[in-house]
Structure formats: structure tokens, C-alpha cells
């Protein structure tokens, strides 16, 4: 017992810092990835054939290759193009780019899920495409795609563990290190598991709440 207490004293701050890094990289990637994904989805609505093809390739490449490989390419391969990023920066950017492909697909399906009639009504009233997207499509879309968005956000939270492989000092890296230093691998892995379960559980609860609030005006 006292051994555990002293361990907590010794490593507490580190673990907290690791947790902080996990949260920062997770939320940073979510915000950047969602923004980028939304931009891509909107571009796909408006742009010409060539741009759409390029975007399609972007999405397919990101969705058919593992995140780890993408991370390696950015972090270890980046210097080839003059892009020498810090591990954390590379991690957040890589995760954001990875997420953007999935977010783009969710937003795209969201755009097409709004009944055509609602758009036609806006058209007949003389509303511009941009106004229609902003005032009619987006609010309704958010209701329909909230579950998918929550799902992606949870997936990204778990992917942050991969950042440990490129030496980002997030939770997995810290606890793995402690485990090997103190020869308590299994205990630290279990604590790590519980941490992620808590994170996922809380996010799921918040997600359900958001879904319920959003679907107040969904008309079937």
C-alpha cells in the first residue's frame, strides 16, 4: 500500500501531464480535422470535376492506409520536404488529417440527407446556395450526423495512443514507461485501460446528450 502511495507521489505529476497531452492532441485533432473535413465536403459540393477528383483521391488514400503509416510519413518523412515537426505537432496534424477524411465523408452524407424539397423551397424563395447551406442544410444536417460525429470523436480519442510510438509523451507513453521502470507492466496497462474507458464513457454520455438535444425538431 505504501509502495503504491509513494509511486503515486513519484509519478503523479507525470501521469497528469501525459493525460493533459492526450487531451490536447485529441481535441486539437478533432477541431482541426472537423474544420478541414467540413471544408472538403463543401468544396465537393461546389468545385469542378478536377478538384473533386483530387479530393476523392485524398479521402481514399487516407481511409485505406493505417494511421500509424501516415504518422510515420509525416514525422519521419517530413524532413525530406523541409518539414521538420516536433513530435506533438506532427501527431496532432497527422491525426487531424486522418480524421478530416472521415469527417468529410460524414459531412458529405449529411448534405445529401437533407430532403431535396427543403432545398427547393429555399431555391424558389430566391435564397443563394451559400445561404441555403448555412441556414437550411447545416442545422438539419447536424441532427442527422451527430451520432457519426460522436463516433469519430471517440475513435480519434483512442488513436491518440498511437502517438506514443513517435515519442509523444501522452498517457500511453508515460504509463508504458512507468511500467517498464518499475516492472509493473500489467498494473500500468490496466490503469491505462481504465483511463481510456473513462474517457470513452464520458464522451459517449456527452454524445447521447447532444444527440437528444439536437433531435428535438427532427420531423419524420
Amino acid at each position: 500500500m505504501t509502495a503504491s502511495l509513494s509511486l503515486i507521489q513519484q509519478y503523479g505529476p507525470q501521469v497528469l501531464s501525459g493525460f493533459g497531452i492526450t487531451i490536447v492532441s485529441w481535441l486539437g485533432a478533432v477541431v482541426l480535422g472537423m474544420a478541414l473535413g467540413f471544408l472538403i465536403a463543401v468544396l465537393q459540393l461546389f468545385a469542378g470535376r478536377w478538384v473533386r477528383t483530387v479530393l476523392r483521391i485524398y479521402i481514399e488514400v487516407l481511409r485505406t492506409t493505417p494511421f500509424l503509416v501516415q504518422l510515420f510519413i509525416l514525422y519521419y518523412g517530413g524532413p525530406n520536404f523541409g518539414l521538420s515537426l516536433q513530435a506533438l505537432d506532427a501527431g496532432i496534424i497527422a491525426l487531424a488529417i486522418y480524421g478530416s477524411a472521415y469527417f468529410a465523408e460524414v459531412f458529405r452524407s449529411g448534405f445529401t440527407s437533407v430532403p431535396r424539397g427543403h432545398l427547393e423551397a429555399a431555391q424558389c424563395l430566391g435564397m443563394s446556395r451559400l445561404t441555403t447551406i448555412w441556414r437550411v442544410q447545416l442545422p438539419q444536417m447536424l441532427v442527422i450526423i451527430t451520432p457519426s460525429l460522436v463516433n469519430l470523436i471517440i475513435i480519434l480519442s483512442k488513436e491518440t495512443s498511437v502517438l506514443s510510438i513517435v515519442t509523444v509523451p501522452e498517457l500511453t507513453a508515460i504509463l508504458t514507461q512507468i511500467g517498464s521502470e518499475q516492472f509493473i507492466y500489467v498494473q500500468t496497462m490496466l490503469i491505462l485501460s481504465v483511463c481510456y474507458l473513462l474517457l470513452v464513457g464520458v464522451t459517449q454520455k456527452l454524445g447521447s446528450w447532444a444527440e437528444a438535444r439536437a433531435s428535438r425538431f427532427l420531423q419524420h
Binding site: 488513436e159 506514443s164 500511453t172 508504458t176 496497462m189 491505462l192 485501460s193
Partner: peptide
């Protein structure tokens, strides 16, 4: 809920 990486380790 637990990342695959952690499960692997």
C-alpha cells in the same frame, strides 16, 4: 473502449 495498442501491450 480500450485502444487496440493498449490491448496489444
Amino acid at each position: 473502449g480500450v485502444p487496440l495498442l493498449v490491448q496489444l501491450m
